[in-house]
Design a protein around this nucleic acid. Structure first.
Length: 131
RNA sequence: UGUUUAUAGCGGAUGAUUGCUCCGAGUCAGUUCGGGGAGGAAAGUCCGAACGUCCUUCUUUGAAAAAAGAAAAAAAGAUAGUGGGUAAUCCCCACCAGUUUGGCGGAAACGCCAAGCGAGGGAAAGCGGCACAGAGACUAUACUAGUUCCGAGCAAUUGGAGCAAAAGGUGAAAAGAGUAUGGAAGUUCUGAUUCUAGAAACAGAGCUACCAUAUACCCAUUAUUGUGAAAUGAUGUGGUGCCAAGCCCUGUCUGGCGCAAGAGCAGCCUUGAAGUUGAGAGAUUUCUUGGAAAAGUUCGCUCGCUAAUGAUUUUGGCAGUAAUGUCAAAACUAGAUAAAUGAUCAUCGUGUUAUCUGUCAAUUGAUAAAUAACAUACAGAAUUCGGCUUAUAGCUAUAAAUCAAAA
RNA sequence: GGCCCCGUAGUUCAAUGGAUAGAACGAGAACCUUCUAAGUUUUAGAUCUAGGUCCGAUUCCUAGCGGGGUCA
């Protein structure tokens, strides 16, 4: 897993991205992006605004529709998270974004290499990837 | 040797690169070092407990607030052969009644042996139900055939009131209920005889209410054996359909809610009827406004929480048929929170199939090595334990059944 | 994670333990029509699954499977 600082955990933040973010879709993954610099109007009243702008928070959602077995869901999630962690450790993802990945049911048949390609395509389309 | 079933156990290993989390130690914030890190079902949430909290009643202490301890009745729910185990249970162990299958004996009822099942109190407290069929399904009953009495009719025949459940037939079940021997009112059939010609008595055969004797079941009383459920006997002017996983009765058990329980910390917003307090206005009880407290709402963090000393784990001894108990020694064993315990790759192991080679038997089978392909299960802790249930590739052990091949 | 509720034709619902499990809408086929619609006739159910109680189970009991709700 990546660091705890980059977890998207609070209900407030989820509401923020779900209301004001936009979708990027592909075959077996979807991505919702919120560019923080363009949405200052909706920030919480307390806290430092500049510091808030430089955050990078991620979340991955594998719903019950993907599979009823916890083992299958956990494995898919670990694979996605591992790809993101590798990209972040190289500094390939720009700061200042909230990212929210949602899996579709056919992800369980895909290999690690296929998922890796899919994630990169999505990030490129969202213009978050800095390479 | 194989196959199937049941029970018990195991249920991948090593390395490389790169990560997450908890604990400890340093450093003084960049991180570094050391150690720990999923299961037999972690699952389903079907039961039971620990633990927490709330409520009712009572007792004690106390000025009070409160604290500590204990628990009844009603209702509702659960449970049900006996004995034992346990913290407790709808769990576990042993046994009993009953029952299924197979074998043996017997004319049959039934008895014996082996294996399996075994939610099994009360139907002589009451209510309710028993479709269809059938005369009748619990206040027994009369369709056919039979028979007695009173009638109608010339007669054939027919109306009413009884008797009779032994025959026919129905049904899952027919008035507790078989079997053997003997008798038997009655009834059916056959035979020949008699006469008033459709009846009588006679003979034989069949069925049978009922009676006697013997035997098996149930019930009541009673004797012996067993801790007990029960078993084996004796006695009797004894004989009551089935269903309580229908209501119900009887005995026993259970107060409710569940770690999202519960405790604490800090903040945002709203309300402000009545009461309290400050200020102001009016002027003696009205209005305006602020605060505290309270109520509601929303969003977080910490504790509970797991490094633990226990219904703990492992090994061994002893007691017990067993479940289990007890003694001794050693060990301390995950703790996350949109939720860690991983990701990628390589090599090996295990199983199946195929190919090739060697050996033994000589169609073909067994075995050993090599190569290739495929497979390598079910499944992821969330307060903690004890059970139950369900899922599970492959391997090992034990037991039983079974067929095939060889000797 | 805890606690509740519900499963009957394709869909929405019935059925007191007792025929062959019904109704409406829908679907298929045929008739009617020049064709379509409407109309008429007709066809098709593993009562979620598996055990048990009972002479007999959609109904009663037990276990599983699936679906839904709710609690800070």
């Amino acid at each position: 897993m990546y660091n705890k600082e980059n977890h998207l955990t609070k209900v407030r933040d989820f509401n923020l991205i779900l209301k004001h973010g936009y979708w990027v879709n592909n075959q077996f993954l979807s991505l919702k992006v919120l560019e923080l610099a363009k949405n200052e109007a909706y920030f919480p009243s307390t806290g430092d605004v500049d510091k808030f702008k430089k955050q990078l928070k991620l979340a991955v959602n594998i719903g019950l529709k993907v599979s009823k077995k916890a083992v299958v869901r956990n494995r898919a999630k670990r694979q996605v998270v591992e790809i993101l962690r590798e990209l972040m450790s190289r500094g390939a993802i720009q700061a200042g974004y909230y990212l929210f990945f949602v899996a579709k049911p056919n992800i369980k048949e895909k290999s690690f290499a296929e998922i890796s390609e899919e994630v990169k395509v999505l990030l490129k389309r969202a213009k978050v990837l800095s390479e």
